[in-house]
């Protein structure tokens, strides 16, 4: 199965509390998942304020500044992983430092019938 991991910041993290300990830092995570052969691609993204959203309505182009949903949390990075099943994807995601400091959304890729 192929999954896209959205690495998100979370507004629900209480910044006044000391940060929770992450299972490993991002360099370790990337090195480990690359070595396991499960991580196909991944990178960090510029902040949401640098996003540009494009829409075409009634043939007209609309370009707006910012992400498609306004909110305090935003997608900070993505990873594409390939692994056995959702349980393995959850195992991979829980080790990502942003699972501790934000959240990770796991999205299975669409499967095209042949």
């Amino acid at each position: 199965m192929q999954y896209l991991l959205f690495i998100n910041t979370s507004p629900d993290i209480d910044k006044t509390q000391p940060a929770e300990k992450e299972p490993m830092d991002i360099e370790d995570w990337v090195a480990r998942m690359d070595a396991r052969g499960v991580r196909k691609f991944g990178d960090r993204l510029q902040a949401a304020e640098d996003a540009t959203t494009v829409r075409v309505r009634k043939g007209e182009l609309l370009v707006t500044d910012g992400p498609f949903v306004e909110g305090k949390d935003y997608i900070a990075g993505i990873d594409i992983i390939e692994c056995e099943n959702l349980d393995e994807a959850i195992e991979i995601a829980r080790l990502h430092p942003m699972a501790t400091h934000g959240n990770v959304e796991i999205r299975p890729f669409w499967v095209w019938e042949d």
Partner: peptide, 14 residues
């Protein structure tokens, strides 16, 4: 089916 939830008893550590 779509998310790939495995049909199994989770392994001991889970």
């Amino acid at each position: 089916r779509n998310a790939g939830i495995p049909y199994r008893v989770p392994p001991g550590h889970l």
